[in-house]
Design a protein around this nucleic acid. Structure first.
Lengths: 213, 213
DNA sequence: GAGATATTAGCACGACCGTTCGTGCAGTTT
DNA sequence: AAACTGCACGAACGGTCGTGCTAATATCTC
């Protein structure tokens, strides 16, 4: 039986795999998944091309692993920090502002990884697109879930269309990222902050809800 | 003096240039400007690689020419048709719905050309990014201008922040395109239609304005 | 220790990349 | 008819791509 935890070989393999993926998400967030090249990653990290290749088996698998790595980073940076804010409207707001902070802080050097890469693959059938569509649904569901809690708690009007509201919130977030990166400005983030509150207030049961102060 | 209009040679040259660019915008809207390859364009169109290359001089110039071609197509498909709708709120609404129709109809096979390509280049300095930033500003200015007319006509509240409103409208449009292409659905367009009206009504001087029926 | 095993390096391959060159050919001008 | 102009061609350049081999190296089991 392989006691994987004590095997220094696979440990070292995991280590280089992690290093490769760290570089890969950075490159992909700026130039896209197609710009990932095994040779370039090897050169950047002082490894051999075949060494990098062996760790993934194919370029598509490297791309998929990069998406999974980015998904983890995103979850850690955006979703995890709001786990301790109370459910309902406060958590909805915290999620959105956590997202804006994630974009502002350039957790990925090119801004939101998923904005960059989804635009690249959304019109091309394949496993990469499917994985990205899954990530998008996951994020959307996270917001809808938080909104549902807010509505059942009575903080949102009962007739609110949560799908539409989540759509609008996501639209504001992504566009803030897009414009901020494209024009190298921060005003889009300020606009987004104002608009988020306005959108939530418009659907709030109590427009003066302290959670939207 | 050369009567350029009667020179069949340059005329034929323009023709193939046009054919190359037509194919180029299609490819770029699906796979991005980096996926444009001179050899592939030549093969697809039954031309020689060097012939295609000669018409542009460099790959970057081909990319820039592709952006310019897309800009023209966008202007013809989205902006031109609303020229005859009355200024003010009706034109704002017509602009937005024209944009949604442009995305729905897949004027570019991969959805909005600029969504795809801007995400690809927004974090990479260079002339291509500058050109794309210019296109984005141009479109944003078009909306702000229409909103300004609406406000000075008294259709919008005097304290409306037109920059924020334009931002929100664009956010809804682009996200509708993005989600519709990614998930191969049409519901995002319906969401967008509802949200546009809601956004405009929230800032309208008269919430029952017939232009927002 | 010896031997099994898994990660990495080195190398070669075919394909495609952007680019350059010299040439042929059709249309314009004289 | 001759000289000139400009588009398109085929061939070739040096590079880089992804991907297979084989050999070397480091670690684990015994």
């Amino acid at each position: 039986m392989a006691r994987a935890t004590t095997d220094g070989r696979v440990l070292r393999g995991e280590e280089t795999r992690r290093a490769v993926l760290h570089r890969a998400v950075g490159i992909a967030s700026v130039e896209g998944l197609d710009a990932l090249s095994i040779g370039r990653l090897a050169t950047d990290l002082g490894l051999s091309k075949s060494g990098v290749f062996a760790g993934f088996g194919s370029k598509e698998e490297l791309q998929l692993a990069t998406v999974r790595a980015a998904r983890r980073i995103f979850a850690d940076a955006v979703v995890a920090p709001v786990a301790d804010t109370p459910p309902g409207l406060p958590r909805v707001r915290a999620l959105c502002e956590s997202w804006l902070a994630y974009s502002r802080a350039r957790v990925f050097p090119g801004g939101c990884f998923f904005y960059e890469v989804t635009a690249e693959f959304d019109a091309r059938p394949g496993t990469v697109r499917d994985a990205l569509a899954g990530c998008a649904r996951e994020w959307s569901d996270t917001i809808v879930e938080a909104l549902t809690e807010a509505r059942t708690a009575g903080a949102l009007r009962p007739d609110t269309d949560l799908g539409d509201l989540a759509f609008a919130l996501i639209a504001v977030l992504e566009t803030a990222n897009s414009q901020a990166v494209l024009h190298d400005e921060t005003t889009p983030y300020e606009r987004a902050g104002r608009l988020l509150l306005r959108l939530l207030r418009a659907e709030a049961a109590d427009p003066a809800d302290p959670a939207l102060a």
